[in-house]
Nucleic acid binder design. Structure first.
Lengths: 250, 250
DNA sequence: GCAAAAGTGTTGTCCTTACACCCATGC
DNA sequence: GCATGGGTGTAAGGACAACACTTTTGC
């Protein structure tokens, strides 16, 4: 098999005698790649981390579960693609959304080379009732997911690790909870995502000392035990005091 | 102006009566986008963080500095593109390299929509002598860089923040130093990248307690003061003890 | 009254910070 | 001998981990 040296912009510049005037021609000379965006949408319910999946549209992956994805439309910023996909598939908007990384293995799509950019979104399952049920769209317990279409299992795992890391540095967890929540719900969420058990008193002290929770004065209802206080998250205060940190720790 | 609903894979599936058999046809129906990879290559010399830049090939950016970039070749994984670009432009291989994120603003390239994936590399300026000097390739002090071609300034800043964060969680700094280094060099590097001053005794205690430095028994030479001990980094031990961390801190 | 979870403080340990003096070398 | 950075210890304060009992509610 012959190994071809990949073409390059250097060659283009040389052929065009140094400075490139016609940038359109330059860009036309680039190989073009189909780009998709895949959204990993996490939710939290029944003390479990959930993820929103659909049945794959592709026959060879028949029965397999798939992330919510679509190609990036012409002249669409990728963040906008991700919001559009969320909206199209779930009817939801106003959710937390962040780019995680690109997956570019040339064999990852059976139809040819497709690069996908993974996005992670977090949303509150109660708040956002699913209005669209195409392709059996529904929530799956994260830990019960085994096989998936394409390389989506790998993407899902990457996003899960991303979430584990992020939730320890930013209060993203609040995007997964109702506006008003009890400290027990908050702790359950951290335990479920991090896969650890935490000391209740220390957990409460930690959040109390951060002063990011506002006591609503309300308490839980319809619980068969002493009701917990309900809090809301002080987003404003958090935004003002974004951490500055110079510790070194590895 | 008319707002067109973007096309979508959902429409394709409906038109093809549910399950998609012909995946090649599916992928053919996707819009294709030129993809480039841009490498932000950091080095450290004379107690300063440096970055490797070239003059832009593009006439409209004449005189401006540019990251080392090129388009992604056919069927090339993006990591490989980044390694290839490094090799082509600098002659270097065996460097630290990590994907940072995609930049997809439709207006970021004057020749039309081009999505770029930014990679960050760290290397030791002494070790890797530049063998290629096309486009005035050379090291710039990070803080002296003002204007750049395209959105490269923004990409550079994103990578710098990425580096600041990563260097506190992983000992990436060692990729920027010679194999044998003194504690003063190590501290200078941290101070330069983080933009802080650190207490010398505490810094040394911190690294001593991690036991990741191996005393070579050698000392600096040709310094006009008491020579410092030279250490090498214990990569093997670091790899074994990757941190497990369950603290919450924001 | 019993089941179930809410709520609450203290102590010891460890990590972080702040801080000042003598030492080895080149000139 | 002087200039320059190398090398070291201690004490105080803050964060974290471990640990048990009383309270409130629904049934």
């Amino acid at each position: 098999m012959l190994k071809r040296e990949p073409a390059s912009i250097i060659a283009f510049a040389q052929k065009n005698g140094g400075l490139i005037k016609d940038v359109d021609k330059l860009v036309d000379s680039y190989p073009r790649v189909p780009i998709t965006v895949d959204c990993v949408i996490f939710g939290f319910d029944e003390n479990e981390l959930k993820v929103l999946l659909i049945r794959s549209d592709i026959e060879m992956y028949k029965g397999k579960w798939s992330l919510l994805g679509d190609f990036a439309a012409d002249n669409e910023e990728l963040d906008d693609s991700a919001y559009r996909i969320l909206k199209q598939r779930t009817g939801m908007s106003n959710v937390y959304l962040d780019q995680v990384r690109a997956f570019s293995n040339p064999k990852r799509h059976p139809g040819g080379r497709v690069i996908t950019i993974a996005y992670c979104s977090l949303l509150n399952i109660q708040h956002h009732e699913l209005k669209i049920h195409d392709n059996e769209l529904h929530w799956h317990s994260y830990h019960s997911i085994k096989e998936m279409a394409f390389d989506h299992k790998q993407i899902l795992e990457t996003c899960y690790h991303w979430l584990q890391k992020r939730i320890q540095e930013h209060p993203l967890g609040f995007n997964l909870l109702p506006d008003k929540f009890s400290l027990r719900e908050l702790q359950n969420l951290y335990e479920a995502i991090l896969g650890v058990t935490l000391d209740r008193r220390n957990f409460r002290k930690k959040f109390a000392s951060m002063k990011l929770l506002i006591d609503t004065g309300e308490v839980e209802e319809d619980v068969p035990h002493r009701p917990g206080k309900l809090y809301i998250f002080n987003f404003e205060k958090y935004e003002k005091n974004k951490r500055k940190w110079t510790g070194i720790d590895f």
